[in-house]
């Protein structure tokens, strides 16, 4: 009667085996088993070793547990003996060997993970806020939010900090987790081996909107990255249309400026994300919504419907002012 269950278990195990492959086709899944960087490569390799051993152990125990249910029910007599030798060999020596091998794997992985394959030449500060990510490039004026651009194939030093509670930095395809702790700086490194966009998300419960604290890691060829960083370091471009001009004045004269910075204008708030080049970002509200005119208008008008509990209050702007502000912001590429 346990046979079907056993079969289902095996089927489920098979699903895990194929899931990596499936995820490989679907680029939007942040799968730890489809790695694009040395750190996650290492983990994925270890996973398949661990998985094979684990599957073997599970199958062995299942067989050992289920077979007596089928074979040992019609017996006349039970077998005597207290089986110390059996328990000693199967329960201590064999697992002991497997565990020692696991420890060797663990220590090797810890050592490999400790430092990047090449010294990194660039340092990025990542500061967690409830519920978004502030990103600063050392040696550059560039400040952005929820989107971390890195040159492909180059190790980058990360300095992780938090402005409030504990968060955890996690990009499954690129690097395992590292926590962001109050009054501490956690240093680690990150390297992406293939160009592309990788989804990351806060992994330590950080309150009401923990679910909406995602970010993107964008790996670009060196030249593209340098161009991007150069642009980010500059002040916001001057508005070119009347609509955008009006948007700028609404922004600097309304409550927007008390929380947000747009470099090169009089808006220098430091509570919310830096908006100097917000138009160029792929998503808004820490990954919650796409960055386009419609979504941004909705967000500015009342962000509480999208992300209840975030600290940005609804903005009571006239429809014209709202359109003007969003036009201006969308123009900040």
């Amino acid at each position: 009667m346990l046979a079907p269950k056993q079969r289902r278990l095996l089927m489920a195990l098979g699903c895990v085996l194929t899931s990596g492959v499936v995820a490989g086709c679907d680029r939007s899944t942040p799968s730890a088993l489809d790695p694009s960087g040395p750190k996650s490569d290492l983990v994925a390799t270890s996973w398949w070793i661990l998985f094979s051993v684990a599957a073997a152990v599970c199958i062995l125990v299942t067989v050992l547990a289920v077979v007596p249910m089928l074979l040992r029910r019609r017996r006349r007599q039970v077998k005597g003996g207290d089986g110390k030798r059996f328990v000693m060999i199967c329960g201590i020596i064999l697992p002991g060997l497997v565990l020692m091998a696991t420890f060797a794997l663990s220590v090797t992985d810890i050592a490999t993970d400790a430092s990047p394959p090449r010294p990194s030449r660039m340092t990025i500060d990542v500061i967690g806020h409830r519920w978004w990510w502030e990103v600063r490039y050392q040696g550059s004026a560039a400040v952005t939010a929820n989107e971390i651009h890195v040159p492909v194939g180059t190790p980058v030093q990360l300095r992780l900090q938090t402005a409030d509670v504990i968060h955890s930095f996690w990009v499954p395809e690129v690097m395992p987790k590292m926590d962001l702790l109050p009054k501490r700086v956690n240093e680690t490194w990150l390297s992406v081996s293939r160009p592309g966009t990788y989804r990351g998300q806060c992994a330590e419960y950080c309150g009401l909107q923990h679910a909406h604290m995602a970010f993107l890691v964008v790996a670009q060829p060196r030249a593209d990255f340098d161009t991007w960083l150069g642009r980010q370091a500059q002040d916001a471009p001057q508005p070119t249309t009347a609509e955008a001009q009006r948007g700028l004045s609404v922004l600097t004269q309304s409550s927007c400026a008390t929380c947000h910075t747009v470099r090169g204008t009089s808006a220098t708030g430091d509570i919310g994300p830096d908006l100097t080049h917000v138009g160029g970002r792929q998503r808004l509200a820490a990954g919650a919504i796409p960055n386009d005119f419609g979504h941004m208008s909705g967000w500015v008008a009342n962000s509480q419907t999208v992300k209840p509990g975030n600290i940005m209050p609804p903005q009571h702007l006239s429809p014209e002012d709202l359109r003007a502000v969003v036009t201006y912001l969308q123009g900040l590429g």
């Binding site: 050992l64 007596p68 249910m69 040992r72 017996r75 199967c90």
Partner: peptide, 17 residues
């Protein structure tokens, strides 16, 4: 592991109900 194999061995040497 010790307990696990003690249980499994008991099953194998027993008469199951």
């Amino acid at each position: 592991g010790i307990q696990m194999f003690a249980w499994l061995g008991t099953l194998w040497r027993g008469r199951i109900v």
